[in-house]
Nucleic acid binder design. Structure first.
Length: 431
RNA sequence: GGAUGGGUGGGUGAGUGGCUGAAACCAUCGGUUUGCUAAACCGACGUACGGGUAAACCCUGUACCGCGGGUUCGAAUCCCGCCCCAUCCGCCA
């Protein structure tokens, strides 16, 4: 969430930012409500603290009087404390209700987009940040989409997934399973080489963790829940990995902190099913290698660019046509200040598939989870958090299969050979 | 799942009703000493939210000893509920 202090001191900038998210004048009124509520909270705290201070002093006096055996004087003071306590109760309620109201209001305000984020309503308005200027792969005349290839070469099986779980939970098998594992290994190696520390986090998280990165309350419907144990299946490794540093104060010299993790991701995708959703284009469970950075505010945008470079290099090595989009205000996620999406070209479907989303959250997440750093002067500030997919598997597989299909089989990019152990996917499954 | 014992500051750990935001030790940082290092000695060393102020390396208030509630003039300390952890038993990859 945004800091009240920032809303107060930098209101114009916030208003301009939220306008890029197409906030109406009506919606923007919440900012004034926030400031009003914060004023109330502060006023109540002042009065409350004064009363508590008085109570404390009187209590100390009572203690001393009792020690001296001056019982009647002590009793008189006790009576005074009694009346103060009644006022305290009233103020306490005011204070608490103001505090709760403030939090609730703050939870409704998304992050303020960076000044470089374009205005726009939907994905239609995203800007192509870097286009693919080379030719697309030319496919044989009998080329088919990946879901047909999956059947033909027995790489994954959706019907079997339905039997075991439900729609959108594919079973990978044979060379399909091995390709999946090879990609994970490849992505992890790339991240480790780039200086990220590998972690293997839990796949189930508690409510504090889900709140830390903004899944609660913003995206609760996106997550699978284990209600009995009050746990959530992670929709992305970002959630457990970023929360590793929740409530921590990091020495400035330790920044940036770079972590990577492979995890399966679970997404309910409620209401997201439409015409374009076939095969691996959208599934409830997919594998992903995530990169996370905690960075000094002064450097976070430079770091964001570096993360784009990392993802680009991987896609180059996979020889996949891709483009980078700068998301417009209307399409930028609730918690993000700036987001780039990577899309790869799936040649048989003749469409772009989103395979990575790289974002700078600035202090939005760290404010929620109190993730801070201590600078050289000993001052404590909120750190910036960033993360990106590097990369998300299911759609990468889809593009890889479609683009590399030949009459002899599906060709595996060279960079993966040492991970797959085969150079092509063939009907007999022997490569 | 059953039994027992626990949750105190970065760590170890004292503290069973007021003088405890919390001893002591360790770690860390600054200084003195020193050919260098080490040792020794001295000092500093929580966080949040407020107020003084628009601001401070300044002063000050409140809260926080797992979480929530209760008793009391006063709670780390007593009572109730919850959560978590350790160990043993059971079960099990």
């Amino acid at each position: 969430m945004l800091q009240v202090k920032v809303i107060r001191d930098d209101k114009k900038r916030i208003i301009n930012g939220l306008r890029k998210r197409n906030w109406s004048a009506q919606q923007l009124k919440v900012l004034d409500q926030i400031l009003d509520t914060d004023d109330k909270r502060r006023a109540a705290q002042k009065d409350l603290d004064d009363l508590k201070s008085e109570t404390k002093q009187l209590s100390n006096q009572i203690g001393q009087l009792m020690g001296q055996g001056k019982k009647s004087e002590a009793e008189a003071l006790k009576a005074r404390v009694g009346t103060i306590k009644e006022q305290t109760k009233v103020l306490e309620e005011q204070f608490n209700s103001a505090k709760d109201a403030l939090d609730e209001l703050l939870y409704t305000v998304p992050n303020c987009p960076h000044k470089s984020v374009p205005k726009g309503k939907s994905s239609e308005d995203n800007k192509v940040f870097r286009n693919w200027n080379k030719p697309f792969p030319t496919l044989p005349s009998d080329a088919v989409p990946h879901w047909d290839l999956g059947k033909k070469y027995q790489l994954f099986d959706f019907e079997l997934g339905v039997k075991l779980t439900g729609a959108g939970f594919p079973v990978y098998r044979g060379q399909g399973a091995k390709l999946q594992r090879a990609l994970i290994q490849f992505f992890l190696d790339q991240a480790i080489k780039a200086g990220f520390e590998e972690v293997i986090p839990p796949l189930l998280v508690n409510t504090d963790t889900a709140r830390g990165t903004g899944q609660l309350p913003d995206k609760e419907a996106q997550m699978y829940t284990c209600e009995r144990d009050e746990l959530y299946l992670i929709p992305t490794a970002e959630v457990p990995v970023t929360n590793i540093l929740r409530n921590e104060i990091i020495p400035e010299k330790n920044l940036p902190i770079k972590m990577t993790a492979y995890t399966p991701c679970f997404r309910r995708e409620a209401g997201a099913w439409g015409a374009d959703v076939r095969g691996l284009n959208r599934v409830h469970q997919f594998d992903k290698v995530e990169i996370v950075q905690v960075e000094h505010p002064d450097r976070s945008y430079k770091t964001l660019q570096q993360m784009l470079g990392h993802v680009s290099r991987i896609l180059n090595k996979l020889e996949l046509p891709y483009r980078i989009l700068l998301l417009c205000g209307g399409d930028t996620g609730f918690s993000a200040a700036k987001t780039f999406d990577f899309e790869v070209w799936a040649a048989a479907q003749q469409r772009w598939l989103e395979v990575s989303s790289v974002s700078n959250f600035e202090a939005f997440q760290s404010n929620r989870m109190q993730l801070r750093y201590r600078d050289a002067d000993g001052k404590i500030n909120l750190a910036h958090t960033l993360n990106g997919s590097a990369l998300a598997l299911a759609r990468i597989v889809a593009a890889l299969l479609e683009n590399n299909q030949t009459p002899e089989g599906i060709q595996i990019p060279k960079a993966l050979w040492k991970y797959t152990g085969f150079k092509q996917i063939t009907l007999n499954g022997k490569g």
